[in-house]
Simulated assay, not measured.
Amino acid sequence: MIRKLLLPLLAMLAALLPAQANAYWEYGHETVAAIAYRNVTPAVRTEIGKLLAHQALLETPTCPARTIEQASVWADCIKELGPRFSYAYNWHYQNVNVCKDFTLKGNCPDGNCVSAQIERAAKLLKDRKVPVRERVMALAFLVHFVGDLHQPLHAGDRGDLGGNRARSTYGLYSTERLNLHSIWDGLLAERAISTPPSLVRAYSAEERAAVNGGSIEDWSRDSWQVARDVVYGSAYGDPCGPVPERAKLDEAMIEKLIEPARQQLVKGGLRLARLLDEALG
Rank of each mutant, 00 (worst) to 15 (best):
L16F: 14
L17D: 14
Q20K: 10
Q20R: 12
Q20T: 06
Q20L: 15
A21L: 03
N22S: 13
A23D: 12
Y24P: 00
W25V: 01
E26R: 10
E26H: 11
E26L: 06
Y27C: 04
G28I: 00
H29E: 11
E30D: 06
E30A: 11
E30T: 10
T31F: 04
T31A: 04
V32K: 06
A34D: 04
I35M: 01
A36I: 00
Y37K: 05
Y37D: 10
Y37A: 06
R38D: 07
V40D: 11
T41N: 12
T41C: 12
A43Q: 12
V44R: 07
T46Y: 07
I48T: 05
I48Q: 00
G49C: 09
K50E: 13
A53G: 11
A53R: 02
A53Q: 09
A53H: 02
H54Y: 14
H54K: 13
A56W: 06
L57K: 06
L57I: 01
L58D: 02
L58H: 01
T60G: 06
T60I: 04
T60Y: 05
T62G: 01
T62E: 12
C63L: 00
P64T: 01
P64Y: 07
P64A: 07
T67R: 04
T67A: 01
I68M: 03
I68E: 03
E69Y: 01
E69C: 03
Q70G: 09
S72N: 08
V73T: 15
V73Q: 06
A75D: 14
C77V: 07
C77W: 08
I78H: 11
I78G: 08
